[in-house]
Design a protein around this nucleic acid. Structure first.
Lengths: 217, 217
DNA sequence: TGCAATGTCGTGAAATTTTCCCGGTGCCGG
DNA sequence: CCGGCACCGGGAAAATTTCACGACATTGCA
């Protein structure tokens, strides 16, 4: 009995690579491919694959959101995230969203195949490098933002990273600019950063600020 | 007569994809692969391929630097950059460093093959989406940082994005903290951003701040 | 050669922001 | 009922940002 697989990645040449590696493995068959989260969701519902291999950074709805939706549709869906991001933060997000595995693209092909088999067998598969990252982040205890911050603070952080001025945020939140400024200061304090620049870099590390490319002109 | 190719990408599964696509093309032969810039440089010197297909974001010395070094070693080297980055800024950097082509990974395989052929034929190959980006950035005239900033200002910008405090930068530059603060202010003015957060995002867009992952713990 | 333009560095003082401390509200769990 | 916590903002001190200005060296050009 062969397992059916749905490939999701916005880079066609990369999908070509997945397919080539997986084809060599008996018992696996790629039956569909998607190039963004929305398409992945649609295809999942129509082809019902045994396993989804999903990239994270994609246009439109990202990989994490796609994982969430698919799992919402089918609580038993087996999704393996396969991405370039070597940050523990991304892995945590993906797993929390419902992924059964997380493997980085720097891993050798064997690791991917192994993870595919493990997830199909019902196991959770995390590639060694991310295991290590996670262990480190436990030890060093980097404050993972989402945990140490209250919902309101987190909201302000998101807006700070996205919107522009304190005033605009105050506007959208219906509070005084003063409060936003206070929160801004408190956030930096809680996260242990001294400047806004460090703040952005922290957000980048932790995957709060996902977008690699932004609306350019 | 078949053209020899050196593949450079830190993701082995992705290289698998390149190879699979290129193999289908008569007259092309992949004779070596590298997983980072330094290895690419070494291999180029020993195998002297007709063409290099190079990723940009790699550990250690990045793709742009690798392009520069290879071109320094062999002024006639034909290098095609093949990357996920859809920013005009990256393309400009790559071309200035000596690349003969720039194709994004979102492009269909045919585009890659076409670009390979073009570069081998001595032409410059830019994928359509980047062409468009470049056109846009010309029209909107986003100030491309490196141009509008003086060398000193650019240096301070780099340090701001990397180092931490104004004091530390003043230290390394042997100037007064006051001057650094002045420059900092002037830079934001010249680039037309209001906050440090916008500044970081601009730097991200333009590839001044390349690092997706940073020293964690 | 003279001289205007530009980059670089610094000072000082005003304007603004950040930070800290405070009081007040409402909500929950013991 | 009380203590803790999230949340909202005021006030004032502290720090930073910003602006205006001067000085110096270098460059390019008439």
């Amino acid at each position: 009995m062969t397992a059916t697989i749905l490939l999701v990645d916005d880079h066609s040449v990369v999908r070509e690579g997945y397919r080539s590696v997986l084809q060599k493995q008996p018992g696996l068959r790629v039956i569909a491919e998607a190039s963004d989260g929305a398409e992945a969701y649609r295809l999942f519902k129509s082809v019902a694959p045994d396993l989804v291999i999903m990239d994270l950074s994609m246009p439109g709805i990202g990989g994490v959101e796609a994982v969430r939706r698919i799992r919402q549709w089918d609580k038993a869906a087996k999704i393996l995230v396969f991405t370039m991001h070597e940050n523990a933060g991304f892995a945590v997000q993906a797993i929390r969203a419902g992924a059964r595995g997380y493997v980085t693209k720097t891993s050798p092909p064997e690791t991917l195949v192994r993870a595919v088999m493990d997830v199909l067998a019902g196991k959770i598969a995390i590639s060694p490098d991310i295991d290590h990252e996670l262990a480190l982040s436990r030890i060093s205890g980097e404050d993972s933002a989402a945990d140490v911050l209250t919902p309101r603070e987190f909201e302000v952080l998101r807006l700070l990273l996205a919107e522009n001025t304190t005033e605009e945020i105050a506007e959208t939140l219906h509070v005084s600019p003063k409060t936003v400024a206070n929160l801004h200061s408190l956030i930096k304090d809680k996260l242990g950063v001294g400047s806004d620049i460090e703040l952005v870099r922290l957000a980048l590390r932790q995957g709060i600020l996902t977008e690699p490319d932004l609306g350019e002109a």
